[in-house]
Write a protein that binds this DNA or RNA. Structure first.
Lengths: 236, 236
DNA sequence: ATGGGGCACTGATCCAGATCAGCTACCATC
DNA sequence: GATGGTAGCTGATCTGGATCAGTGCCCCAT
């Protein structure tokens, strides 16, 4: 497997150590374990939505594509992430392996039965779904109301936030996806992403010491730029 | 209560009849029932995320606002919808009453305990969360990759789809929100929404027989315009 | 009935980001 | 170490939707 956990960029709060948990280990025991090669589709739009999946190793993304070939990435998937919980009869999106993958597949019926019987896992699944929804709403806000520069700033801020949550303190790390992937996630073109990164560098908010790596130089200003929500009046 | 169920526009698949169910009735019994006046905030960004809510009557929306006052509506809420399942410690969004509301509020701890003890309700909550995620991903796709005209077409298509799911067959019905609300949902301005509606009418896809009501005149073309996904190769 | 306030619509202009068109650096392969 | 292929960056131009500036209409209060 080409991408160990040090490139992990799981959704906010989805920590890889989830894998250590007894209930999840039990789930692994019941599920089919599958391998997929980098560059293949795990799920195709139009397939019957009969299964539920969990990613154990590698990274992938979920995307939708328009008739005229425009792509929108809905989420990046990393070790520990469950996906394909749709309530539709068929998937409307596809899931694509960005690296060699190891994953668990469970039929929906077996999954339901197993979860019903395992309250601990059940709470965990609810929490994961709620977190996926948090992430999706964050992206909706980004796509709906941020400028290109703000989108890219918030993306880098988010990468950094993830690193920190995973216990890695360094302000410098590898960006695990291409400019085109970032663009298709942020609703931009790769040119606009390039320009935004250049501007962030010129303004001294970030640096690209080596190709493929970022370093944050001015945390407060990057946050100010990317996290544009009105400062709430913290009432309890 | 000003808005009975005939204006219901719940998320895809969230049908009001959920209210009839025994498990949900049981939930009502444990929860605090509250009333809120139209035009007030139920939830403010920055509040501690200690409670879970369910809307029983009226309609509301969930939104986030930028420092410079731009608003993004994340979801419209209608009778039967649960909301505020965030895993964050505090809400990052607000929820606003668009009409007089009747709702149930449950502390997170009590909610967890109750759901654990009621497998039927538990499955229902998981399904609702998955449906919310489906809707959110639909909106991500719309915001990321559709033109203004396509966004408005898909919004009207979606209203129609809902009407049909709720068992109402007529091709004509009231739009239950303002142009500004539609714009803030679709990542546009109210001017752009107006222009798109005018164009759809000029092109004969829809009609506005009375102010505040729409009628679809050309279903296939409206669908073609709004639902822009690549036609999948249906494999099983 | 009359005045006023808000909402939908429309026209004119502007601008952020898309599009088109290179250019360069970095590889992988022979 | 030549060679081709790809990813990232940048410059020039174009354009869809935002912004600004109205107008008309409906509803409500006096």
């Amino acid at each position: 497997m080409s991408n160990p956990c040090n490139q992990c960029l799981a959704r906010r709060g989805t920590i890889c150590s989830a894998l250590d948990d007894a209930a999840v280990a039990q789930l692994f025991a019941v599920a089919n374990v599958e391998r997929h090669r980098a560059g293949t589709w795990l799920v195709n739009p139009g397939d019957r939505a009969d299964d539920v999946w969990m990613l154990r190793d590698g990274h992938a993304h979920v995307s939708r594509i328009t008739r005229d070939g425009k792509r929108q990435i809905l989420a990046f998937l990393f070790p520990g992430d469950f996906f394909a919980f749709t309530q539709e009869e068929r998937y409307v999106y596809g899931a694509y392996a960005d690296a060699d993958l190891l994953l668990c597949r469970l039929s929906r019926a077996r999954f339901e039965a197993f979860v019903d019987a395992t309250p601990e896992l059940d709470r965990r699944i609810r929490a994961q779904l709620a977190r996926s929804l948090d992430s999706a709403q964050e992206l909706i806000f980004t796509l709906g109301r941020k400028t290109a520069l703000e989108r890219v700033a918030s993306f880098i801020w988010y990468l950094q936030y993830r690193q920190r949550k995973l216990g890695r303190s360094g302000p410098r790390w590898a960006i695990p996806m291409s400019r085109t992937d970032i663009a298709d996630f942020l609703g931009l073109t790769s040119e606009s992403v390039s320009r935004a990164i250049t501007q962030l560098r010129r303004d001294g908010l970030i640096d690209l010491p080596v190709a493929g790596e970022v370093e944050i130089r001015d945390m407060p200003r990057l946050r100010e730029l990317g996290v544009v929500i009105a400062e709430p009046v913290a009432r309890d």
